[in-house]
């Protein structure tokens, strides 16, 4: 028997199974909280920090990532306060300044309200979201992919050429990598990076499923209102 708890997100009452993350509970109910490093059914790490929300406790607001916060009876969450919106925008700005060469990242930036980038552009080909490492099944539980190094030097590698031994070409890493989605007008050369304010993810290969907001693929904005409000707050069997 699944136990359910009641939480309140942005004034809306939601029921979610015990042990669910606030992010999952919100997404399941059609409340779109932006996210980038989330992989459904794989442990969340809270690395991108885009899914931050305010957890209101005793009149006190604590900012935390909704993907790592488990639902608790009576929890009060605000996902779109002015403070959160500003912080999320700044984080998205940092991301797009670092890796503008991806439609997914550009899209996140647009939807999080980034209108100009105040930093010089870099042209990284990895944002260290960790999705590839986390979904890689490897062979018999041993993965060829891992994080190496630390801080600025942190990167994803397949050391010792273990790729040849352990990779079974499932392609999941490529499927999930935000950097493989090329910007609408083509790849940006070094020195030509810019904020593509026109970019809205046009995922034509994803069909809109009634009752489920699929636009939250690659962290598409919040309050998108593509979704019928009547489906929110329903209990799941």
């Amino acid at each position: 028997m699944t136990q359910y708890v009641n939480i309140n997100v942005d004034g809306m009452s939601i029921q979610a199974p015990k042990g669910t993350s606030v992010l999952d509970a919100a997404l399941d109910s059609g409340i779109c909280i932006p996210h980038l490093c989330r992989v459904p059914y794989v442990a969340d790490i809270g690395a991108c920090r885009l899914c931050i929300v305010e957890n209101v406790l005793n009149g006190h607001s604590k900012i935390t990532t909704s993907c790592t916060l488990r639902v608790k009876e009576g929890m009060v969450i605000r996902s779109n306060t002015e403070k959160i919106i500003k912080l999320r925008r700044n984080i998205a700005e940092l991301l797009v300044a670092e890796a503008p060469n991806s439609r997914a990242v550009q899209d996140v930036a647009k939807r999080c309200g980034v209108r100009d980038v105040r930093y010089s552009f870099h042209n990284s080909n990895c944002i260290l979201c960790g999705k590839c490492v986390r979904v890689c099944p490897g062979t018999l539980g041993v993965k060829p992919l891992t994080f190496v190094g630390r801080g600025k030097d942190r990167r994803v590698e397949a050391p010792f050429n273990l790729k040849t031994e352990l990779c079974n070409d499932c392609g999941r890493c490529i499927d999930l990598c935000p950097m493989t989605v090329v910007p609408c007008l083509g790849a940006m050369k070094t020195g030509e990076e810019h904020l593509c304010v026109n970019c809205e993810a046009k995922m034509d290969f994803i069909e809109e499923t009634p009752g489920l907001c699929v636009w939250c693929y690659f962290g598409e904005g919040f309050q998108c209102q593509r979704h019928d409000l009547g489906t929110r707050g329903r209990a799941r069997a």
Binding site: R49, A97, G151, R154
Partner: peptide, 20 residues
């Protein structure tokens, strides 16, 4: 910047930009 573990965006990229 040297000691950051590098996992989360604000610390990894934020410190980098502050230093810049």
């Amino acid at each position: 910047q040297d000691e950051s573990c590098g996992k989360c965006v604000p610390c990894r990229l934020g410190i980098d930009r502050m230093l810049e």
